[in-house]
Design a binder for these strands. Structure first.
Lengths: 252, 252
DNA sequence: CATTGCAGTGAACGCTGTTCACCGTGAACG
DNA sequence: CGTTCACGGTGAACAGCGTTCACTGCAATG
């Protein structure tokens, strides 16, 4: 009989020093995710195969099931770690020069986002492409900010936008002027972020995110190739970010 | 020995009535693509499996290789047919009321694009998500307008934009004012479309496409769920299209 | 020291894409 | 009209996929 009740480790439960075993487990898990990412880079999510990862870390396929409940869970964890890395990159870019004008910090962060996407296209595709049926779903829905590390990615933009809007309160529609459906849909999120900006500014925020996403995703996915022929769209991106800054009331 | 030279059918070579065999072949091919699409809808591109399609059309897996050189080619053909269908949908929307003001026709077409995307998320994901390593690549690069049916999709927007810009020549930067890199990158495409609009307007066109893509893709892929919680983003989309119309100089 | 739980293995199942030798039928040609 | 030949389709096979299960050691625990 497999023990239905695992013995509660009093040490780790009190979140004191983790056991040797726990450290080894975490290290192995990290190594597995690292190998998974290598395969992701090699040939997209399709190539991220359980047996491939296993051989890469020097064990057999069933051994991986000690660390992940299956391939989908593994991909989900990979997504989380990638979100984490991306958030770190963006935070670093945003706070690289804390005394610079906010517009410049916004631009630097946006360019860092684009840079990460282009230098990590398979990872970007996994995070921001079409959702894979059993994988991303759980991540985006899970509202727990501790577990949902994708939220950290959103937060860097939200904080940046909130500060930006506070310094430059470009006129936004009043809550009453908004489409009633839109107003109702957004109130929950508005509460969730502590109403740091008025509801109308949330719409502006979403609009900015959509534009930024469009600019980065179209290039990273090759949906600009019909006109740019595999070229670097940095110049175009620069223009688009200028537009975005103008929309935020940041004249130069 | 397999005959290295297939007998040239003089009838089909002159593109007269196709042979009975050819008709049967084309019909089977269409039925296969139809089955592939059903599987795509059921569970994304992953579920589009050679054996699954085969059983659906009532033959065995190797039989499919008489119609497609492999799974990737089949998916590529599926992409082409979907592009074709989408282009038809958009053309129909655009020309539904040819006497309506262009702004309205532009909005109707945009909403038709969003509608198709939301009602056919798996198909939209295949066409406009992250490219699948062996599949989409060939399509986007192939510049032959006859073979590349994805171009038809782009053309409906280009024609609409060109007409829109001709009626409402919103000021665009002169070619000399553009970033030299951007100008050089776009000249080939500019030639390709016969310079129906000035180069500066092409930049505006790309900017509009990026914004439209962002609006539709973020919603279809669930990248707005963090704020909208699986809700219908039609109200937000309406706002975004208003912005886009404003950018095109279409006041209301 | 004994026990328990965990890491890892090898075999197995049903699935995948793809290739091969083969078979029958129907269309084309002498 | 009879022959030939290309094509549609099959069954077996191969390698690889995700996953489960019974099993073995080893290391930490009581």
């Amino acid at each position: 009989m497999l023990g239905a009740m695992t013995t509660v480790n009093p040490v780790s439960a009190e979140r004191s020093q983790p056991t040797r075993r726990e450290r080894a487990h975490a290290a192995a898990q990290a190594e597995i995710l690292q190998a998974a990412r290598r395969l992701l880079i090699e040939g997209g999510a399709e190539r991220v195969t359980v047996r491939g990862i296993a051989t890469e870390v020097g064990i057999t396929a069933p051994g991986l099931y000690r660390y992940f409940s299956g391939r989908e869970a593994l991909l989900g964890e990979l997504c989380s770690s990638l979100y984490d890395e991306l958030a770190d990159v963006l935070y670093e870019a945003r706070d690289r020069d804390p005394d610079a004008p906010l517009k410049q910090r916004f631009l630097v962060t946006s360019f860092a986002f684009r840079k990460w996407a282009l230098e990590h296209r398979p990872e970007f595709g996994l995070l921001f492409g079409a959702p894979i049926p059993g994988v991303l779903v759980d991540i985006h829905i899970d509202p727990d900010p501790a577990a949902n590390r994708g939220m950290r990615f959103g937060q860097v933009w939200l904080e940046l936008f909130a500060e930006l809007w506070r310094q430059h309160p470009v006129p936004v529609p009043d809550a009453d002027e908004l489409d009633p459906r839109l107003r109702e849909q957004l109130t929950e999120y508005h509460e969730q972020i502590g109403r740091i900006v008025p509801l109308g500014a949330v719409v502006l925020y979403l609009s900015c995110w959509i534009q930024l996403y469009g600019a980065v995703a179209t290039e990273a996915f090759g949906h600009l190739n019909f006109a740019l022929h595999d070229g670097d769209a940095e110049a175009l991106f620069h223009d688009l970010m200028g537009e975005l800054a103008a929309k935020l009331g940041l004249t130069h």
